[in-house]
Amino acid sequence: MLNHQFLTSLGWNPFFQQQLSLHEWEHYLPARVTQQHKNSLKVETSEGEINLPIMPSMPAITVGDWLLIDTQSAFLRLLERQNCFKRKAAGVQSAEQLIAANIDTAFIVCSLNHDFNLNRIERYLSLIHETQAEAVVVLTKKDCVDEYTGQLEQVRQLAPNINVVAINGLKPDCIDLLSPWVRTGKTIVMLGSSGSGKSTLSNQLLKQPIQQTAGIREQDSKGRHITTSRSLFLLPDGGLLIDTPGMRELQLFDCENGVSATFADITELALLCRFSDCQHQQEPGCAVKKAIDSGELEARRLKSYQKLHREQQHNHADLAEKRAKDKQLTQFYAKTQRDARKNKRG
């Protein structure tokens, strides 16, 4: 008999339950991916932890996914995701990289030192809004600065009712500020660049030093990659945490709705422009430029919006072209195999 209470603590909910037939529920095991390695997956089930070999026939899987396996620990299928965080793979190749799946809340971890960057926060917000997960901006290392109320206010200006907290990740009481989002069965993903304090914060939430930490370079507050793989942890106070490696590059694609939601103030102003295709440069009757001139809108914010909008369109086109080529290649291979079988029979 499956331990439904334990599955619930792993994030199991009616969305996944309704994907199983009665036969599947009675004879197979739901399993959540907790670690992903080159050749295997570590999954957690109501009957314990299992190492699952990655086979060529399996779909792309990431940490946080729910799978269905049989009693012999063989993969059956991947369950439909509630959401999935993904980016364009780093480098020049046209490929997507899955970050984490089935997320309730995303912590955008950004330090209050020299690495504080509003443009980067907007980039992460666009990714999160696309998935419809809840976003929380966690400003770390408040003990390293004399004053941070100005930075708090800058983040609050990015969106109405945005969740933002400032913490000292070295003190255990910092988790009290994050407790509203740490709940049984709810999954949190930690996003941020190297040196932002993600691993330190993870250790506080886990109440033990599981993740290795390191200092930053004094001259520019840049950090080093400490977390090198994605892992899902059960938190002692309830809830689940996915820590991710620091990302110096987060290229967006398939994020048109996320970018629009992050910059809702600009998209709403654009509706008032005289021309529907206004580029918000020097066109007459541009409501966006008027807002910048009056001080209602920051010029920085418009530049950030235009950069992310161009980037997501470009990357989306590149990946769509690659998918089309891959589909044609798959169809060609399938036709070649069919023809070979026909010739063999003939």
Rank of each mutant, 00 (worst) to 15 (best):
N3D: 15
L7Q: 06
T8H: 15
L20M: 10
L22T: 10
L29N: 11
T45D: 04
S57C: 08
S57G: 09
M58I: 08
M58W: 12
P59R: 04
T62N: 13
V63K: 10
D65S: 03
D70H: 11
Q82K: 15
R87I: 03
T105Q: 00
H114E: 11
D115T: 11
F116L: 04
L125P: 02
A133N: 06
V136I: 13
C144S: 14
P160S: 06
N163T: 04
V165Y: 01
V165Q: 08
N168S: 14
L170S: 10
I175K: 03
D176M: 05
L178Y: 02
L178W: 05
G192H: 04
G195F: 00
L205Y: 05
T213E: 06
T227L: 02
T227V: 03
S229D: 10
R230M: 08
L232M: 10
L234E: 03
P245R: 05
A261K: 07
D265W: 09
G285K: 02
C286F: 05
G295T: 10
E298S: 14
K303L: 13
N315F: 12
A320K: 09
E321L: 13
E321D: 08
Q328H: 09
F332M: 14
Y333K: 13
D339P: 00
D339S: 06
R341W: 11
N343T: 08
R345K: 13
